[in-house]
């Protein structure tokens, strides 16, 4: 299987992904810094990103920070987002 890659559209950075690793962890490993990193547990809402395309699974997240509508629109917490394909995403979300 080929290596999966996530493209962050604002910076143009490419981040290599690992299986069963959260998008946030992959970003950290690649030294790609989110504006803010918090609890890494889906609780604080600081790592919210906008996924534009690609497949992913989600772990549990605080509903205070991610509504069902957010989920439908790809606004998810990077620490709870597990990519299953190549991904494009944006660290800028409109309602951070």
């Amino acid at each position: 299987m080929s290596v999966l890659v996530a493209l962050e559209v604002t910076s143009g950075s490419e981040i290599t992904l690992r299986e069963d690793e959260s998008l946030l962890r992959s970003m950290e490993r690649s030294c790609f810094m989110l504006p803010k990193i918090g609890c890494k547990g889906g609780g604080c809402g600081l790592c919210k990103v906008q996924v534009l395309s690609g497949e992913y699974e989600l772990g549990k997240m605080s509903k205070k920070h991610v509504s069902e509508l957010d989920k439908l629109n790809g606004k998810v917490l990077a620490c709870r987002c597990y990519p299953k394909s190549d991904l494009t995403f944006n660290v800028n979300t409109t309602n951070r």
């Binding site: 609890c39 890494k40 547990g41 889906g42 609780g43 605080s62």
Partner: peptide
């Protein structure tokens, strides 16, 4: 540190 739900 943080618990798995983000509580410190």
């Amino acid at each position: 540190f943080f618990d798995p739900s983000g509580n410190r």
